[in-house]
Design a protein around this nucleic acid. Sequence first.
RNA 1: GUGCCAGUAGCUCAAUGGCAGAGCAUCGCACUGUGGAUGCGAGGGUUGUGGGUUCGAGCCCCAUCUGGCACCCCA
Length: 428
Amino acid sequence: MPAIPAVKGTRDFYPEAMALRNWLYEKVRLVSRAFGYTEYEAPYLERLELYAAKAGEELVQEQAYVFKDRGGDLIALRPELTLSLARMIAARSRALPRPIRWWSFGPIWRYERPQKGRSREFFQWNIDLLGVESPEADAEIAAVAVALFRAVGLGPDKIRLLVNNRRVAEARYASIGIGPGQMPSALRLVDRRDKLSEADWRAYGVELGFSEPTLEGLVEVLTDRDAWKASDELRAFFEAASDLGVSEYLDFEPLIVRGLDYYTGTVFEARDIDGRFRAILGGGRYDNLVADVGGDRIPGVGFAMGDVTFGLLLEQAGVEPKRMDPPAQVLVCPIDEPASREALRTASRLRAAGVQVEWYPLPDRLPRQLKYADRQGIPLAVILGSREIEAGSAAVKDLRTGQQTQVPLAEIEGRLIEQLERLDPASC
RNA sequence: GUGCCAGUAGCUCAAUGGCAGAGCAUCGCACUGUGGAUGCGAGGGUUGUGGGUUCGAGCCCCAUCUGGCACCCCA
């Protein structure tokens, strides 16, 4: 039978990859909880119309996996999480105590052409603070992102958080003669600034209907790295970030405007210092989103971080994930037929005592069994053969020191637990 | 959805249009009651898939799939 290929753009999580995913999940969980955020989960399936209003044309029209269910409703595999969050918050907007600090880590689907750092099924950490409308709240979210960078060992020499503010940016665009109707075009043009050559960028600007003098003015605005100082909101943001101890990771960056339509104020994204990868995370303030999906007006700020690009960055930075599912603590090794039933009984008794026990599934040559334990990283072997059965004992071997002792079967649980406690806890 | 590049063993890669190979990994043996090392050996392939050209195709041509890169967009 020919092999059936995996679905394009999906990843198989073999145990090594699963270890990395669980490790990342654990870091995300610890960081989220350190700031008082609680975990939630939204459905993987949503009605398509949830995204229609605010997520952006492309995301809905081109990138969502959409199907019609048997009742005739158009259903999407969620292409982002923030609108699900907004829907859930809106449904209980009168009941939830505020501020609302929630986080989630789960799968997202986008029908895109896969390439490095981009797959069709990926995991995303989303963390959001709702019910507070202040630069300090934005700064807390930025600090959460920095806390993760620190937790995984990425210093400010490896990754930066680039910050801008849409409201401030639009006010400056207005000051050089860009009208309200031209704002979406202006944001698109700014977004392209470092992706196009100077000539192409200007041509694109003209195509969008901007005059040469306006483009000149825009270039000036975009190169003014001190523009944040003129904004009370951005000054308050950077001051709060300083109080939160994360300034060393932050840069004001006038080019950051973000693609999603729903951002209303602060916007930011994290980039690796070399610019080798796409954005590591992206987010911002969305003060109208909950109202837009039918709830009270509840302001919010948050970001999403995908596991694919972040994993590439970790790999490139040489960060080694620690296994979250360590091997069994003990391998029970039956070496001849008379010992095989005692091996099952011993394994069972040890498990009842709370020890993680793997059993070699057939009487076999001892070297093979020890080699297997060694490769799995199992620290202790309980060896059972006819000689041990006759003596009513087992041979317990510490694979790290090579030391071996005879232990009466009647006392084996206590003696093994003692021995496991003596092992270096950091290595288990 | 557009353009470009690439696909040979589980992995990394060889092979003028002329017998499909190596290293690593896996498994076995040396070693049937003591692991990591060493040595020897074995298994593993419709050369991504389907057509075409040719006496003969891993190699040339077309299509398709998958991956990578640039667009697009974005995590």
